[in-house]
């Protein structure tokens, strides 16, 4: 409705229109309009408190929105959820939970097994394969509490891979991970994009935006700019998103 030349519905993986989220009457994000075309990889960038995680959670219906509409693959997002994989922040869970690496990855198969569904040998092999794609096959039987932060992040991504989703939404997948993990994750995400899957990730490291992502969404409670990295990820727009704090914090 905002876009003067509407993109055909089938080409948009996720369409957010007029999304507003408030915590205790204070708007966290306001009037968000964004289109995430299929087969693209978008970084959501903005300062702390810009509402990046909130935007993702509200788009998925995990936190209630005050206003707005979200459609995925042309359907209401609740209906399209089986095609979406969500990777929460690593810190969102207690890693002392009594579970092995493979148990967590198998959680990604929940929609296939259902309430009473049994883990078939094929599904078990699929879970191991997802771990292998992130170089974690040897850790399958390891206790999750015994992993490093980067390894935990890779387990989360393996779980999302097991969901075989068309749209993957990640909340800070590169936060506090080692270089080996970062390269393993980006390889997998780029492979997904090559398969035509859509990737949306909250990202913090401005230095790697251009190398990793083909699109950016600059956010600071509202959308500052959205578009291809080459044209949108410019000094002026990024400075606007960060409220110029990046520049003003540096002596002239």
């Amino acid at each position: 409705m905002v876009d003067p030349t509407p993109i055909p519905v089938a080409e948009t993986a996720l369409a957010v229109t007029g999304l507003t989220v408030s915590y205790a009457a204070l708007p966290v994000v306001e009037g968000i309009n964004a289109r995430f075309p299929k087969g693209t990889m978008t970084a959501i960038i903005g300062p702390n408190g810009a509402g990046k995680s909130t935007l993702l959670k509200a788009a998925l219906g995990l936190v209630p929105a005050v206003a707005g509409e979200v459609r995925a693959f042309g359907q209401p997002v609740a209906k399209a959820m089986p095609r979406i994989a969500y990777v929460p922040q690593r810190a969102a869970v207690d890693w002392e939970f009594p579970a092995r690496v493979i148990d967590v990855v198998q959680m990604g198969l929940y929609r296939k097994t259902g309430l009473l569904g049994r883990m078939t040998p094929a599904l078990k092999a699929q879970a191991v394969d997802c771990l292998a794609r992130l170089g974690m096959a040897d850790f399958a039987q390891r206790q999750i509490g015994a992993l490093s932060g980067g390894q935990q992040q890779r387990v989360f991504l393996a779980r999302a891979l097991a969901q075989e989703a068309d749209l993957m939404i990640l909340d800070e997948p590169f936060a506090g991970v080692d270089a080996a993990t970062e390269s393993a994750i980006i390889t997998v995400l780029h492979a997904l994009r090559a398969e035509g899957k859509t990737v949306i990730a909250v990202h913090h490291d401005l230095a790697t935006v251009s190398a990793y992502f083909d699109r950016v969404l600059l956010l600071n409670r509202r959308v500052i700019a959205e578009g291809p990295t080459t044209t949108t990820f410019r000094r002026a727009t990024v400075a606007e998103a960060y409220g110029n704090t990046l520049l003003t914090s540096i002596p002239a």
Partner: peptide
Amino acid sequence: ALFWRPLTIATFDEGFANSAGI
């Protein structure tokens, strides 16, 4: 026993559980 799997997943990671239809 009946709800073991969804209960375990929701206990470990509520955000993910929600997104997985639990």
